[in-house]
Amino acid sequence: MIKMNKRGEKLFSIWWFIILIIIGVGIVSGVSLFYSYNLDVRFLESDLLAGKVLKCISNPEGISPLVLEEDFDLYGHCGISQSVLESGKYFVKIEIKDFFDDSNLTEHKFGNNAFEKDCEIKTKITAVNYPECSRKSVYVVNEGDKKYLVSVLAASNYRGGKNSNEQTN
């Protein structure tokens, strides 16, 4: 749509509006990205989760004997919400290895198992939409002088959102 006056000068130029739209989109994107970046707490969350699980299953006296069993209940033992962890946005992996020969004694996984591979990929490339991961390991001396390497991998890809629930008092 180009309207010309008598002298043939352009007044309403479609290109001007296209430039305005590009400027607008650039400013809106920049501002939104800036403010959303600073509020990304996924790494903090995964770090807290890994620390909490590690403190729960190991202490200066040794590791909790329940964690060596196959049907270890992380939720009941460590006070973690099953509905939250299994919402598809979190992942926890616990590995207990013999300290000397590095043999895997037991392994437990909870939450979204796909995040395990995503965490591996994240060590090699930058991927904003992949979960943020935290790994913590500790060397534990158990009863009978047994030595274990306890490793916890936790991942979070939860971003929160507008509330869709009704408030109840």
Binding site: E45, K52, G79, K162, N163, S164
Partner: peptide, 23 residues
Amino acid sequence: KDNQVNVKLSKEDGYSYNYFTNY
């Protein structure tokens, strides 16, 4: 409620975020 904290400052929906501890 249900391991979720909701903050609301107007008559709109507000914003919620989960916490994973079951306390």
